[in-house]
Amino acid sequence: MVGIVIVSHSQKLAEGVVELAKMMAAQAPLAAAGGLDDGELGTSYEKIFAAVEKVYSADGVMILMDMGSAVMTTEMVLEDLDRPNVKMIDAPLVEGAVLAAVESAGGRSLEEISLRMEEVRATKKF
């Protein structure tokens, strides 16, 4: 199964998104990388790195993040990791995570899920 990492400035938000996504896909390998070491708001390079390692497998990992430093720091982690099957996804955090988890649990590949993420970006709530 494809691993999923949720990066956020807030530990609570990252863990909450993981919790929501797990509701529909308990088996999906999800990891939260939220906040700084001391729980303060911010982005932690080490937490992102550890979260990717935690859910990594040959099936790959997709990373969803909130904004600003979450994006830039994830980019730096990926440069240092140098693994071709770890991808950043530009999608709404909650909807993206739920869809990714369902698809991962359903056995879809990283490529297939990435394509479906394009849909979630275009989907309107009402």
Binding site: L36, E40, L41, G42, Y45, G68, S69, M72, M76
Partner: peptide, 11 residues
């Protein structure tokens, strides 16, 4: 990079 925590860290 590993300690700043905001955009100025990666930048």
């Amino acid at each position: 990079v590993s300690t700043v925590g905001g955009a100025s860290g990666p930048l």
